[in-house]
Design a protein around this nucleic acid. Structure first.
Lengths: 340, 340
DNA sequence: GTCCTCCGTGAGAGCGCTCTCATCGATGGG
DNA sequence: CCCATCGATGAGAGCGCTCTCACGGAGGAC
């Protein structure tokens, strides 16, 4: 608003110091809110800053501070999956919103394969970010360990396959959520229940199957009707068809994610089974799509926004010097619609 | 892989120079690929770098280079909208993927209101990024102008309301897409067509209405059946109900986005009209949801990935010193499913 | 009145890098 | 045989900032 001439040479601390008639050190004190500056000098400096339109140079600051006031959000995901599933988009946006007002910037890093992992490690070590948020790790990804060894504050989204002491994570309660889903089916009077499970090399996949089994066990039933999919709609459709062939009498299905549930709905329709009359279906994730299916899908809602916020907050305190916090597991809840 | 001790003090240029027995300047030359270094020295330096696990400090480099090798992606959007619509997520991910391998980093900036705009301008002027990508601008946002004045390379996504000379944008062809949609309805034999238009203070809204009108005019028909929504599903549902009440005889509808089309589908079902038999519906955006509606939605596909890629490429060349390129408008295409 | 404390301020070093300029040895033309 | 030329290398300044330390003056204790 008050920059005298748009394109004159950018003012530096010295420029401001000269304008205000004080030393560079004093200007720095004013900018950083040091209490040891007299009110008059402070005002003089502030007005000089306004007059010149001075903005501190972040590179210079981070060079001497060895801090960058920015964190990286690393996504590790093959392209197609990323785009079909709004999960990552939500994580990204929620993270960025949590950061608003903290003065910390979000750097997005795409590490799709191992080659890019090497780059990434270098990048982080070059001191360009103060900490790292890891989204959607697969299997036994080496990245968390690498970062931990390098002493970079790191928070993982989702429980890592292998627990590393000193590495915090924020997970949503997959076990509890799946349990909720199965209990809902049971409470609805369904007795011949099956599940379309996710890949077992992902914790989301194995935990959800575990929760499902636990619920059935508590009710004194065997959980022996299991077919596996890979979290895509197509796999859900095939799995449902296989389930129907193998257990024609089933009356309830829990799909480990909504996309597979959508596929199941389609297979059920093709087989002439009415939902939920003949077969009740419960999904998992509560994606936008779930409220628009025919019938609308009963599913498990995950607090993605909370997850992103919690991850960010844990990372910031850790960067601030606090000891590494304990892992956090956020509760999930069932959203009852019409499919079960 | 080869860092001797994980946590020794980070090596600097001087460390490497000492290790290799050369001067700091020579090491710098090797790192930056200068041709004026003898092969033997080059090898000696490279191996010293490997041995020490040296990684250049970006802050120091950008301090002297006045370049940061990173760009900002600024999103301007109220929270709710962002999360419901995967558009931004796609733009973000596509941008980040375009940047892979260029050595340029992506910084995400959330400027939700005017207060945050001021911060943003400061942030950009503090030299933390070399250029700015503006996503989803509304109305006559002052931000593009601010950045243009500040001399920051900037590329806008979508056509800005007010054209600023010297500001490039990359748009998808909203006019052409809407025209395609209307022509598809006409080609299908529909004669009593209406449209659910979007907000007219957004170019996507007004351009799509324009394209629709143009198609009808070419066919020698009046485009007088227009109701406005705000791009939400609810508004689409209400708009469709209003349209039905006002023009009970209509046989085709073009909704300016898929969410409103989904609402329209619901209103149509509630009114007992069969789609596409009684009324044909065409949407716009080709969101994931569109392929799962009942019936699957015929819609206009936008090359979002291309848009993000093009924006990024234009920005990079501009940062590289090329003159500001002309705006680019990318073609859209009709995806025929079952609703029309 | 003297000494000590404490507060506000300035001087200056140094963060890790790039780049200009100087240097030095080798090469070649006259 | 000397000097201009050129290519490889080193010395050193400086990017804009923070922070330590020193300093001068005011105020309080004795």
């Amino acid at each position: 608003m008050s920059a005298a001439f748009p394109q004159r040479r950018k003012p530096t601390l010295d420029t401001v110091a000269a304008e205000a008639g004080v030393s560079r050190a004093t200007v720095s004190r004013v900018i950083n809110g040091s209490p040891r500056v007299s009110p008059e000098v402070k005002d003089a400096v502030s007005s000089a800053i306004d007059r010149l339109g001075y903005v501190p140079n972040r590179a210079a600051r981070s060079l001497v501070m060895r801090r960058t006031d920015s964190i990286a959000l690393v996504m590790r995901e093959p392209d197609a999956t990323v785009l079909a599933d709004p999960y990552l988009g939500n994580i990204i946006i929620a993270t960025s919103q949590t950061l608003v007002g903290t003065g910390v910037q979000l750097v997005l890093v795409n590490a799709r394969n191992d080659a890019e992992h090497a780059r990434l490690a270098d990048y982080v070590r070059s001191g360009h970010v103060d900490g790292v948020l890891l989204a959607s790790m697969h299997g036994d990804d080496p990245l968390p360990g690498l970062l931990l060894d390098a002493g970079i504050p790191t928070v993982v989204g989702g429980r890592p396959q292998r627990h590393l002491p000193g590495l915090t994570y924020v997970d949503v309660d997959n076990v509890g959520g799946a349990q909720l889903a199965a209990e809902h089916l049971l409470a609805g009077g369904r007795r011949r229940i099956a599940t379309i499970a996710g890949p077992q090399d992902m914790t989301a996949g194995s935990d959800r199957l575990g929760g499902y089994r636990r619920a059935l066990a508590s009710a004194g039933r065997k959980a022996d009707r299991v077919v596996y999919g890979d979290f895509t709609r197509e796999s859900g459709e095939q799995a449902m068809a296989a389930l129907l062939a193998r257990h024609p009498d089933l009356d309830g299905v829990f799909a480990a994610n909504d996309l597979m549930a959508v596929g199941a709905l389609r297979a059920l329709r093709a087989a002439g089974r009415a939902v939920p009359t003949d077969v009740a279906v419960v999904g998992y994730d509560d994606i936008e799509l779930a409220r628009h299916t025919e019938p609308p899908l009963t599913t498990i809602h995950q607090p993605i926004i909370d997850q992103a916020r919690t991850m960010t907050e844990l990372l910031l305190t850790q960067i601030g010097g606090d000891p590494v916090a304990d892992p956090v597991v956020l509760p999930t809840e069932l959203v009852a619609r019409e499919s079960a």
